[in-house]
């Protein structure tokens, strides 16, 4: 019973060919389907479900929806009731509404982001198979990210007006879906305003994060790499392909991950995130970062704001 992991993200792109060049040749994803409307579905080599990224051509960048996978179909009935009891509108959409997925719950987070939960998605398998598999596929391209790891959503935060969608969305994920709070940033004169949170259901420090900003949006989607040397090589590949890098290889204080931030050709921020961070468990105490150390938390070495980290997102 419960939410297992991030399932997929539907991104809007300004130029589909440029987007595919990025996600296939640089990130190393493979196209698994293209529908009549022109949406393209992609997966990473180490994923087994049909897709983790759906690209939709649009006149603006950003995210249309995000979806997480639950363990069993019956979980959807339990969660539907819990969402309703929390006072949030929810509908069940039939199988196939999300391509190659079973029935799904559709609702909006308190932040406004469109969110789906589903239990079933067409199985494709890892590129290396399951019988005496090689550790990685020999036909891998570019960075060859393992899987879509997490997303960071920007939520409206305006303490002067009493608006804190980071707090509301965090409460929602924890109370309704049993997400656990790994880390948080607290700000304000009394250090009691949640300005950012990192939440998990897997055994890594975050499967979903919320950060406060002037308006809601997508901060980034992150792809998993094994370790630090992969991060260095990923940055090399980005430079070879003229990818706009936002923040060069770094360690996060928060989650302890090894990171690069960069942009897809439509301006949607991507991250390559490497390392476990640490073993996250439901009984783990929450780590808190204070306002004076929040940039140490985000970029551990410099302890300073870098790139366009909080000012630019789609």
């Amino acid at each position: 019973m419960g939410v297992m992991r991030i399932g997929h993200v539907n991104l809007r792109v300004l130029d589909m060919d440029a987007a595919l060049g990025h996600y296939m040749n640089v990130m190393g994803m493979k196209e698994t389907h293209r529908d009549a409307a022109g949406n393209v579905y992609l997966k990473c080599w180490d994923e087994w479900d049909k897709y983790s990224l759906m690209l939709t051509a649009s006149d603006r960048a950003g995210m249309n929806h995000i979806a997480y996978k639950v363990e069993k179909d019956a979980d959807l009935d339990v969660f539907k009731k819990r969402i309703e009891d929390y006072g949030t509108a929810v509908e069940i959409v039939p199988a196939g509404t999300l391509f190659a997925c079973g029935r799904a719950l559709k609702f909006n987070l308190p932040s406004g982001h469109e969110f789906y939960l589903y239990a079933e998605k067409e199985f494709v398998g890892k590129d290396v198979g399951v019988t005496n598999p090689a550790p990685w596929p020999t036909d891998k391209k570019g960075i060859a990210a393992h899987w879509l790891d997490h997303a960071l959503l920007m939520c409206e935060l305006n303490p002067e007006k009493g608006i804190n969608k980071v707090q509301e969305s965090t409460d929602f994920m924890m109370k309704v879906f049993d997400f656990h709070l790994a880390e948080q940033v607290v700000v304000g004169p009394n250090q009691d305003i949640k300005a950012a949170t990192w939440l998990f259901r897997t055994s890594t420090p975050h499967d979903l994060a919320f950060v406060g900003g002037p308006v809601m949006g997508l901060h980034h989607i992150a792809f998993f790499l094994d370790e630090w040397n992969d991060v260095l090589k990923a940055a090399d590949i980005m430079a070879m392909n003229n990818v706009k890098v936002d923040v060069t290889p770094q360690r996060h204080g928060i989650t302890r991950g090894y990171t690069i931030y960069f942009f897809d050709p439509s301006g949607n921020r991507n991250e390559t995130f490497a390392g476990l961070g640490y073993l996250a468990q439901p009984d783990m105490p929450t780590v808190t970062w204070t306002e004076d150390q929040l940039w140490r938390g985000i970029f551990y070495h410099t302890g300073e704001e870098a790139g366009a980290f909080t000012s630019v997102y789609t």
């Binding site: 300004l14 960048a61 706009k244 942009f263 301006g267 366009a308 000012s311 630019v312 789609t314």
Partner: peptide
């Protein structure tokens, strides 16, 4: 300077003199 992809909108300028070609940019 932001995303360099026409998506984030942070580098918005008004061209007051001269000519140019442009690529697709976000209607948002």
């Amino acid at each position: 300077s932001g995303c360099h992809g026409g998506g984030c909108g942070v580098c918005k300028v008004k061209v007051t003199r001269g000519t140019f070609t442009s690529l697709v940019m976000s209607r948002a």
